[in-house]
Design a protein around this nucleic acid. Sequence first.
DNA 1: TTGATCAACTAAAACGTTTTAGCTTAGCCG
DNA 2: CGGCTAAGCTAAAACGTTTTAGTTGATCAA
Lengths: 334, 334
Amino acid sequence: MKSLSIKDIAVKANVSITTVSFIINGKAKEKSISEAVIEKVEKIIEESGYKPNQIARSLRTGNSNIIGLIIEDISNSFFSRIARLIEDKAYKKGYKIIYSSTENSIDKAKELINMFKSRKVDAYIISPIKGIEEDIQMLLDDGNPVILFDRNLKDVNTSYVGADHFNASHQSIQSFIDHGKKNIALVTTDINVEQIIERYDGYKKALEDNGIRYDDKLVLKIHFNQEESETIAQIQELFENKKIDAVLFATNYLAISGLKALKQINKKVGDDFGVIAYDDHEAFELHTPRISAVQQPLEEIAETIIKLILNQLSSKGKSPAEEVIIPARLVIRD
Amino acid sequence: MKSLSIKDIAVKANVSITTVSFIINGKAKEKSISEAVIEKVEKIIEESGYKPNQIARSLRTGNSNIIGLIIEDISNSFFSRIARLIEDKAYKKGYKIIYSSTENSIDKAKELINMFKSRKVDAYIISPIKGIEEDIQMLLDDGNPVILFDRNLKDVNTSYVGADHFNASHQSIQSFIDHGKKNIALVTTDINVEQIIERYDGYKKALEDNGIRYDDKLVLKIHFNQEESETIAQIQELFENKKIDAVLFATNYLAISGLKALKQINKKVGDDFGVIAYDDHEAFELHTPRISAVQQPLEEIAETIIKLILNQLSSKGKSPAEEVIIPARLVIRD
DNA sequence: TTGATCAACTAAAACGTTTTAGCTTAGCCG
DNA sequence: CGGCTAAGCTAAAACGTTTTAGTTGATCAA
């Protein structure tokens, strides 16, 4: 019933705990343990199904082989796909991932950081929100590897991996303009994070570059946590009361609400009404007509994150902060 | 730099480690520590930002306040939404969740169980695959609370929470038949899990109940890990070469591939070609026409899982196994 | 013969908690 | 005044590892 400990193995093999430990950790040669003993112990371990207690191990060594991943919401497909990729890649390097969602709450984010800290995770991957700069700085001060992704924090000097939101947004609007659109709306959220602001800036700059006057009335900021029905109503109001011939949605879930809104008021997407969504989604490919979208290179982002983390882990957190901005891709459909 | 330990607090407060521990764990009254000391220690803890080392705590107490969640694939929206709900509810009870994806690999599933075991999680929530019955039995034998969900394992006597796949499938096919369909196809996967089999059985039984001959040729089993393009090709072949007037997709990602396939060969969903998807997805509501789907009551499933887990935890894993089958809902659209 | 070197192994400390068992001191009763 | 109880606290063991600093005995060179 109670699980085996290294002591049980030692007793069975009639050797010391130390010897067993050396063998388990592959230090047998180095510590000159004889072939015979190695074999004997390994056989016993094999037969008994003994697995070292990771908790005791962590307590002693101070590291856990666990990487903490803090994201906004695991049920959002952007995050769940990234999480899956990160998990995969980390797994291959012998690291496990623990993840948790902040739901855009500063308090929950702080709690999560604390919980990861008290569990001594070896590194942190965080898609941050404003308000936790200090907590992140403390992690850094303690020498922990920390990588931010998706959204950067200005005041913290740490590594960051993210897509080029400004240019992707700029390019989307430019594409509308090239197709003769003049009255271009932006539906975005009111959460105050870097990547949303960059998308907004890209929108404004593209208009400006083309001599189109920026109109506050064409920008709709949706509350983060509100009911979808309300979102849909707000979007409908925008579309019905303003002269609009194209719209950029700043997130994919807003685009989905937006498409529902369009469907209800029976407005068709097409040559005289352009739509681009930021972050692709399966629904867009399937929609009639298919919806254009900005694709973030998930694979590349995940790959880069893991690469940076491993670098930092091997350099004991003393490698300099790096910012990697990865171009996003505008996929024009239909 | 190094994080504080209970000893540092004890020294600062000029009391023993024991006293600090009692205070941290709310046993101060019970152990008759004076108000004055309690206040002093709490103040120091507050000021210094001390957080107990959970690893040491786990090592000593043998539990971790962590629940392990093992699922097929976190990037599948069914699982990521369930995960989010479970995480939420567990969090409110003071438990954290660690999750990991098996990707339908028996080896990875076993490894995950081992890794959770060696990290001493307090309970396991598993959406299992065939081939890990023994491992699960071992967990049970060791007195661990284990809840299976989504798919059951026949040979293991443990609690299970899942939707009524058989009836939902039966009802879907019945609905086709009620609308005059005769040649009804089933697109499913070749993975050998309970819930997929139940959906298949429901399909067969509904045909039988209505005196329609079961035709092997109308059932397409897709390999789990194959490229989507190949899946689409296979589905197209089925639709083009057989006389079919309705199709049930056994998972939502198959339905999405199927809808893409239909689009490419320009076959319209409508009165003369019915489609139902098992597991709803945002894309279905948005599709033109809207696609009917079987909705699993995620909220209720998550709620029930947590309820059972907490029961087991409080009864030290000695409460009897319970099977909860929750009805699924067929949502007919357009 | 002596000392050095090396192979083969091990005792015990340390990691940071929780908890059992006990130690003082003061107060109170008879 | 002796004995008992209770209040208020603490020493030390235990959890299961890793790792440092050995010990022992054999071999070998001089």
